[in-house]
Design a protein around this nucleic acid. Sequence first.
DNA 1: AAACTTGCCAACCGCTCCACT
DNA 2: TAGTGGAGCGGTTGGCAAGTT
Length: 334
Amino acid sequence: MGRPPCCDKLNVKRGLRRCGKSCRLRWTNYLRPDLKHESFAPQEEELIIRLHAAIGSRWSIIAQQLPGRTDNDVKNYWNTKLRKKLSEMGIDPVTHKPFSQILADYGNIGGLPKSGNRIGSLNRDMKNAFMPKAEQHHLPPFQFFSNINSHLKTTMVSPKVETIQDNSNSSMDLLTQLQAIKLVTEASNCANNNHDAVSPQFYNEGSFPSSSSSSSSSTCSTAGQEKLPPNFSWQDFLLEDAFLSTDPPEQEQDNNTVEFSSKEITQGTENYMIPQNQNHKEIPAQRMDIGGSSYNEFGASSSTNSTSFVEAMLDRENEMFLEFPNLLEEPFYN
DNA sequence: AAACTTGCCAACCGCTCCACT
DNA sequence: TAGTGGAGCGGTTGGCAAGTT
């Protein structure tokens, strides 16, 4: 199956058509006698989800907890089954957060979006989570989008960002990972005894819906938010950097822009969205306080100085959407 | 029945790490 | 200390089979 051997021209024995690396991979991933070839058991499935939530896409580490499974097995199973499964449950498989919360965070970060990219740049999993509802297929794009925003308004939570607690958490060191594995494995054992499908505390302190039938529901975490700085919004320090500074954008990119490596996020740091700039750590607490703020149609806070600008943009956007509803089609209607 | 789509999964790619010289 | 090669890793590809139109 798969591609022809990568090295059928160089350094391969005639007839085998495999280089040493190919042979090793085939042995470790397929031929090894201790490998299981049957489908994944529910317990294995559950453990994969838990470990992925804890340490991200460290497939080799995850596979070590599953005797007879290879990292390739686990990775494939995740990509083909589990990711979709989580998406259908309204959970972002990357962050293990409810999509509603992701959208809320995204709105706060982006506040400034280009229309076509606002949702379009969200991953396809999120699209899947929203689209399966048959009735949504028949909604005009703008109405459908408005429904999402209405949903956001009703489920709006403070973005769950442990972000600025400590920059030293920017990546989990090995010890932390091992501790996470141990924790998760122990928890898995407990859960197996209880026969609970998934215990919520391992989905970012409660972000996992308690019911498997919920989709992008209002069961966003509340427990996890208790660990947050109160009423913090990404927009508060992103917008000030992005719009209030007089520095050229290039310098912003270099010095202040908060960026997140996808690798950092997936490698066990999904709970720790880390600003790269140490200076963010020094932002006074009161700057983050947006208590009592209201949210506009797109979830942007209207309590900061920068929001008038944002609102103007969003108002203009709304006009554009009404005028050119097709602008929203691409992200959701392939 | 043919064309097309989708799901599965073995295998490839490119990168990093590490032991060895 | 620098260079080299093998091992290991995560992400991605593409052939095949089954399902759908």
